[in-house]
């Protein structure tokens, strides 16, 4: 009987689970939502925090607790995951502000990077290298990459989630990719 209910929850849509939480305070339904979305949210936050897994998981926990508290405000107009990403980005931004880690953009540095290097040696870029390279980006660039690639949001959705103009998101993505190409390429350049 319990197993059948659990199977039903796994098969239910996000909207069904949200309604179960709202109507019946169904914690098992919320647990299923957490299980369903934890991987993406934690991955995005790991990239945002420059690979700090413990910090990212703390933020991910805060994200889900905030989602629980504010679920009645979810309007079913956007995907639930998009709404969660927005909460996650806000949690991260507010923590970054608290820690006074906001970095100034350094546009000049980008121009000096060799943008073709990575494309010439693509096959050896490991995930660890990528994580390290992403960690060297500015907060804005990291946020844009996390939103557009890891959260799989469109530029418009990313702009909305990050509270910045669409043009800024596109610029951050371009700069970030130029830096990543250069950093990953440089790392793999044969000695």
């Amino acid at each position: 009987m319990g197993d059948r209910i659990a199977e039903g929850k796994v098969a239910a849509s996000d909207a069904d689970l949200i309604l179960a939480v709202l109507d019946r305070d169904d914690r098992e339904a919320f647990a299923e939502l957490v299980r369903r979305h934890q991987s993406k949210i934690r991955t995005v936050l790991r990239r945002l925090t420059g690979g700090d897994a413990a910090f990212a998981d703390d933020l991910a926990q805060d994200t889900f607790v905030l989602a629980w508290r504010n679920l009645k405000n979810f309007r079913f107009e956007a995907r639930f995951s998009t709404w969660l990403y927005r909460i996650a980005f806000n949690a991260w931004q507010s923590e970054v502000r608290k820690r006074r880690e906001l970095l100034l953009e350094n546009a000049d540095e980008v121009a000096a990077l060799d943008e073709t290097a990575f494309d010439e040696m693509p096959d050896v870029a490991s995930r660890v290298d990528l994580e390290r390279a992403i960690a060297t980006l500015s907060d804005g660039e990291r946020a844009a990459i996390a939103a557009c690639y890891y959260a799989d949001l469109s530029h418009e959705e990313a702009a909305q989630a990050l509270g910045m103009p669409v043009g800024t998101v596109k610029t951050h993505v371009l700069r970030a990719k130029a830096k990543l190409r250069a950093r990953l390429g440089r790392k793999e350049t044969p000695r």
Binding site: R27, F30, A31, V34, R35, Q38, S39, K40, R42, T43, D57, A60, Q61, F64, V65, R127, L130, E131, Y149, Y150, D152
Partner: peptide, 17 residues
């Protein structure tokens, strides 16, 4: 590809609950 790598729950959902 990096974004597609799934993280194991490893007790995370229980911690949230």
């Amino acid at each position: 590809e990096d974004a597609r790598v799934a993280l194991d729950d490893a007790g995370f959902a229980a911690r949230v609950m």
